[in-house]
């Protein structure tokens, strides 16, 4: 298994390299530049800025210059947030996004998993239909509707919780954004677990467990749930990478200093280095979580072996 993980990590290097290269040239191809404003700058100022940031050099030279810095762990200065380097921006924003995303993922797995199991065990009853209806609702209603509603109801009208702000990660400030972020994931996980659980409960080996008089909790948790988790595990990989790297919508609505907004503001302002920084972070998360899913899969299912 160790060899496998090592092999996968080594194999990720060319993947990341291709992503970096693709993203680098794509963003440069986009029209406009980081210093184009509605009011155009003095040509000399523009030229100076371009020289400072090496933007006057040929593209391939800029590319190798960027790669060189990247190899030393330097993501470069941000063009828009002038007083910060991209590294600093990500270092301050990433913990916020990861805290929110991690909690939302946990919530989604626990609540979604439990709801899915209950629905499967009570298949075709009122409880089952209620879970499915709620899940469908959760998937269809976008979080830019849910988030302001939550803030309005619990933050403004009832004043139970702060309606926004980070406040150094005070738990009360986390509740609403985490719920808003988790709701669609809860819905997806509940549906996935319900489906695979129904299948698992009908399988021959669960019939064996029932024929041997095992108690219900053993049948459900030990014999059905472990098998039912497998499809959910494959879903969680990409979902986790998405959640942990921040959500622009939730961060904007609740006024949180995560990294989700950087991707959008960076792209809109042609902040080349900031875009590259967020692309690299997201790519690393996707690669890592896919690896984690594969390892988890092998731990859950002894038929899967990589060595």
């Amino acid at each position: 298994m160790f060899r496998y993980v090592l092999r996968r990590l080594l194999g990720a290097i060319p993947t990341l390299f291709l992503i970096v290269t693709g993203a680098f040239f794509l963003i440069r191809v986009a029209p406009g530049g980081p210093f184009d404003r509605e009011r155009t700058l003095e040509p000399t100022v523009m030229a100076n800025l371009n020289r400072v940031f090496h933007l006057d050099e040929p593209l391939w030279q800029q590319y190798f210059y960027y790669l060189g810095n990247l190899a030393r762990g330097d993501l470069g200065p941000s063009f828009v947030y002038r007083d910060f380097s991209v590294g600093q921006l990500l270092a301050s924003g990433l913990p916020v996004s990861m805290t929110l995303g991690g909690l939302a993922l946990l919530l989604a797995l626990v609540v979604g998993g439990i709801l899915g199991c209950i629905a499967a065990l009570r298949q075709n009853t009122g409880i089952d239909y209620a879970v499915i209806a709620t899940a469908t609702f959760g998937i269809t209603v976008p979080n830019f509707v849910v988030a302001p509603l939550l803030a309005l109801v619990f933050g403004v009208w009832l004043s139970w919780l702060p309606a926004g702000g980070w406040n150094d990660g005070n738990p009360a400030n986390l509740v609403l954004p985490v719920i808003a972020l988790a709701l669609p994931q809860i819905a997806v996980v509940a549906r996935l677990i319900r489906g695979s659980m129904i299948e698992a409960l009908r399988s021959d080996h669960v019939r064996t467990a029932r024929a041997y008089g095992l108690p219900t909790w053993m049948i459900v948790i030990i014999h059905a749930l472990r098998a039912a988790c497998l499809p959910a595990v494959s879903y969680i990989g990409p979902a986790a990478a998405g959640l942990l790297t921040g959500s622009i919508i939730i961060e904007q609505i609740f006024g949180l200093p995560g990294i989700g907004r950087y991707f959008v503001t960076g792209a809109l302002n042609r902040d080349y280095t900031l875009v590259m920084g967020t692309v690299i972070i997201i790519a690393i998360f996707v690669v890592l979580f896919n690896l984690l899913v594969d390892v988890l899969y092998a731990l859950l299912d002894p038929r899967v072996r990589y060595d």
Partner: peptide, 18 residues
């Protein structure tokens, strides 16, 4: 599972693969 036990046709699927 104690007084009456059963064995089934498909020994592959009747045992829990995990």
């Amino acid at each position: 599972g104690a007084k009456i036990t059963m064995i089934f046709q498909e020994p592959m699927t009747s045992l829990d693969p995990l």
